[in-house]
Amino acid sequence: TSQSKEFDPLGPLPPGWEKRTDSNGRVYFVNHNTRITQWEDPRSQGQLNE
Rank of each mutant, 00 (worst) to 15 (best):
T1W: 03
T1V: 01
T1Q: 00
S2V: 04
S2Y: 13
S2F: 14
S2T: 07
Q3Y: 09
Q3V: 09
Q3F: 15
S4F: 15
S4G: 10
S4M: 11
K5C: 03
E6Q: 14
F7Y: 10
F7M: 06
F7E: 08
D8N: 09
D8I: 09
D8A: 07
P9M: 05
P9I: 08
P9K: 02
L10W: 05
L10R: 11
L10K: 13
L10E: 12
L10T: 10
L10I: 03
G11D: 14
G11P: 04
G11T: 07
G11Q: 09
G11F: 01
P12Q: 14
P12K: 05
P12I: 04
P12S: 10
P12R: 10
L13K: 02
L13R: 00
L13G: 00
L13E: 03
L13F: 01
P15R: 15
P15A: 14
P15E: 15
P15D: 05
G16S: 11
G16W: 10
W17S: 02
W17V: 08
E18T: 07
E18I: 11
E18L: 10
E18D: 07
K19T: 09
K19L: 05
R20Q: 13
R20C: 14
T21H: 06
T21R: 13
D22C: 11
D22P: 06
S23D: 10
S23Q: 11
S23E: 10
S23P: 14
N24L: 07
G25C: 09
G25I: 00
G25Q: 11
G25H: 05
R26K: 15
V27F: 15
V27L: 11
Y28P: 01
Y28W: 05
Y28T: 07
Y28M: 07
F29Y: 12
F29L: 00
F29A: 01
V30F: 11
V30I: 08
N31W: 00
N31F: 01
H32C: 11
H32A: 12
H32I: 03
N33V: 02
N33R: 07
N33W: 01
T34R: 14
T34I: 05
T34K: 14
T34L: 15
R35Y: 10
R35M: 08
I36Y: 09
T37R: 04
T37K: 01
T37I: 03
Q38N: 04
Q38F: 00
Q38Y: 05
W39K: 06
W39F: 15
E40Y: 11
E40D: 15
E40R: 08
D41Y: 02
D41P: 04
D41G: 01
D41W: 03
P42K: 00
P42I: 00
R43H: 01
R43A: 01
R43F: 01
R43M: 01
R43I: 01
R43V: 01
S44K: 15
S44R: 10
Q45C: 15
Q45N: 14
Q45G: 11
Q45T: 15
Q45E: 15
Q47L: 14
L48M: 12
L48N: 15
L48D: 15
